[in-house]
Design a binder for these strands. Structure first.
Length: 198
DNA sequence: TAGGCCATCTGGTCCT
DNA sequence: AGGACCAGATGGCCTA
């Protein structure tokens, strides 16, 4: 971190006019010189130093404003991530997804929903039945890998729009037979149910 | 205590 | 010129 612009900086940066000499007195000073020379140097230093200090203050203020904007920007980003967490299936232990987990999970979640729709449409086309979208039976097929008691209810008691908690694995809706290629990610575990994301 | 996650600061770059 | 975006650095907190 640049000590010059750190927030814990001395008043020299923020209030250069309050203790002018203390702040810049050491710059180039220290060596014994004749009095008028010292005075001239002091004047010169003062003139040059003031503009330097002014530029310094301007720079510092700009930096502080930029820091503030950056902070707000990151807060907005975090708010968006929180909103995203809010629409993703929750986890039984209520552990908050990390940022990277949230993004990966959202990616997988969207992918899984798309697959669900695609497969449902295919099945509907074969049988002539009306399209079956997000069927609970489709998503909770107990024979499918990764489905160990997870339930998904679009009209259940838990939530009108969110899938219910998974009993032992976080979040991911159970996959039908067609999802047999889905595998647990060694790192992400059940939270990852789409291949080839990384 | 090491490692992961996070917030914040910072300087660089690009865009308006 | 100023703002937005980005990536690196740093330090704090938490957990295994």
């Amino acid at each position: 971190m640049d000590p010059v612009f750190s927030d814990t900086d001395t008043s020299c940066d923020l209030f250069p006019h309050t203790d002018d000499e203390d702040c810049r007195g050491s710059v180039g000073g220290g060596s014994p010189q004749p009095e008028h020379h010292q005075l001239q140097q002091k004047k010169r230093r003062r003139g040059r130093g003031r503009s330097d200090a002014t530029a310094h203050v301007v720079k510092k203020n700009r930096r502080l404003k930029a820091n503030d904007r950056e902070r707000n920007r990151m807060h907005n980003l975090n708010d968006a991530l929180d909103a995203l967490r809010g629409v993703l299936p929750a986890f039984p232990d209520e552990t908050k997804l990390t940022k990277i987990e949230t993004l990966r999970f959202a990616h997988n979640y969207i992918w899984a929903l798309s697959e669900t729709i695609r497969i449902a449409d295919l099945q509907a086309g074969k049988s002539g039945d009306p399209p079956l979208l997000l069927s609970p039976s489709l998503l909770t097929d107990s024979s499918s890998p990764g489905s160990d008691g997870c339930s998904w209810s679009s009209s259940g008691s838990s939530s009108s729009s969110s899938p219910a908690y998974c009993a032992s694995s976080p979040g991911s809706p159970a996959a039908p037979e067609d999802y047999r290629f889905l595998q647990q990610d060694p790192v992400f575990g059940f939270r990852s149910f789409a291949p080839g994301i990384y």
